[in-house]
Design a binder for these strands. Sequence first.
DNA 1: CTGAAAGCGCTAACAA
DNA 2: TTGTTAGCGCTTTCAG
Lengths: 354, 354
Amino acid sequence: MTKHITIRDIAKMAKVSVGTVDRVIHKRGEVAEESYKKVVAILEKTGYKPNLIARALVSSKSVKIAVLLPNPKQDEYWKLSVEGIDQAQQEWAQYSLELTRYYFDLYKNESFRSMAEKVLKSAPDGIIAAPVFTEESVEFFTSCKERNIPFVLVNSNLTSPSPLSFIGQDLYQSGMLGAELLHQGQKKPGTYAIMHIYDDVHASKYLSEKEKGFRDYFKEQGDKTYEVISIDLNHTHTRTLERELMELFSNPKLRGILVTTSKGAQVVSKMLEKRGKNDIKLVAYDLLKSNIRHLRAGTIDFLINQNSKRQTFIGINQLTNHLLFRKKVVPNYLFPLEIVARKNLQSYLDSVDH
Amino acid sequence: MTKHITIRDIAKMAKVSVGTVDRVIHKRGEVAEESYKKVVAILEKTGYKPNLIARALVSSKSVKIAVLLPNPKQDEYWKLSVEGIDQAQQEWAQYSLELTRYYFDLYKNESFRSMAEKVLKSAPDGIIAAPVFTEESVEFFTSCKERNIPFVLVNSNLTSPSPLSFIGQDLYQSGMLGAELLHQGQKKPGTYAIMHIYDDVHASKYLSEKEKGFRDYFKEQGDKTYEVISIDLNHTHTRTLERELMELFSNPKLRGILVTTSKGAQVVSKMLEKRGKNDIKLVAYDLLKSNIRHLRAGTIDFLINQNSKRQTFIGINQLTNHLLFRKKVVPNYLFPLEIVARKNLQSYLDSVDH
DNA sequence: CTGAAAGCGCTAACAA
DNA sequence: TTGTTAGCGCTTTCAG
């Protein structure tokens, strides 16, 4: 019934040609003041909506998107996000979408910098990236802005050059939730630890946001009986690491640990399993293989799911929709903080998005 | 680089016309054995993928979809799903998608039946529905099958006339999770109740699946010290209801209640709040206003989110993609069982999908 | 049984 | 400054 109004209809009503109407719609000038006004008026009155399908068909130009992420081989978390890339690529297979992947070394800002340079050289129509190294990212995305290349950020955000869209979670709330999950049901006062374990020096705003939330949770508890310690272990020497962990475990007041890094979770849960769990609660992030096993076994009590796969998938989708169809994007696409426990784990593994 | 292969290319390679290729692709016969084989071979070899955009453009016929759901005014849960319809409608606004909504009385199978009839009369291209009344649904969707009208089911599934796609959760696991959330951290044996409260007689497979999971959880606990009671209250007489609840509350062994219906959750949590919560745990479903309030206040301990909005949204999307682009759909689109607690509630409310 | 041709709605190049 | 026109890739008559 509601016959769609086309550019032809507009042209007829305004007594001009479709060419003129198109010029008005896309503001590519060369239109007489008078015609312009007439067309705009009719556009408004009729509430004309362009047919995106036709628009996409005609352009039919392959949209080129660059994906700039940490090397998935280094970290299982980022391996999950690759599944999101694959899924998006499949989804858009018929629409000429060219996805090129650029993986940088998660622990070397040098690597980020050089990969970013490559991305720029390839002159993509859009970029989706994880701004792991803040300083380098600011620099890189500033040049993107200058060149008018839209970029979408996943996992963590940047304030200064603002992205077309950010996809991720509220990290502060995430830290709070981690604290709550550890503290929940515990009546005795004690010590709670938040641990970041990585391979190299690696100052990340990402982790500190979580830590702030974690600390604030215990502050809010009112009674000052909670001691919060933050542990940064930045070495690959398994020995040293194990020694430090053993020392931590031996603290009789230790009630729980929140591990923020995937490598970390693996090490800590293995050690805790060996030692016998007793009363130390453990919360980690994401549906990584080792985490799943330890959640099932009971070493890990809860996981907080960040859904790396879906973050990346949505990111590419938004960017492509923007580029191909000029659709509007959600500037701040926040994911909920998903709690995964023993009894709902299976439903996550069964679910389509996993 | 990867120049897309078109139907023209195929035609040229097979030395036939595009018409013939099209006839082969869509199996609309009238093709000589020989040409058929030739074309199929080339199709396979080249891995031809149709351009969905072009396909959608040419048909350009407005796809007509009927939405058959319970009246959102009767139940907040179904009100959420309306948001999903709205969202989908917006998303597909430019693509001539005609969505017509048919709301039936949640408590009257008669109403379902008559609405279903109306749907059939409107001769839609596809249907998305919640098969609340099993018997009537089986009948209705059987006629849909006969008429070749594809239908997508949300919330609960039907076995017999199988839908194009089902979107929902595993209800058995859901009941289990509810039980676990109640039982967790409780050491003393006791009584656990699962409650279904509705306005009218209403035998629903939906609820019984959850109940099975609930009961099985406690069976699995090994020790026989858990008593499970199931309560069906099917009246609107507030007095009687309150009396029955008071009686339940007065059972000193009662440890927790899982309420499966939205109306129920509202009543129970209000009563429990008045009485003083003490040791009775309460778990309910979905981010309904009253549930959110009581979760914040502590009367409700956990919510299990079914994400009615997204279920409906995804359902319409799948159906439209199928109808408009002939895209493949996921036959069994399972959602994870999301646990909402005090500390991650806000993230759910902030998230885009809410 | 097959090929030719007219569009679907929009864009962009080219003429006027 | 404007109008005309040739496609984008596919579907669907309509003649042969």
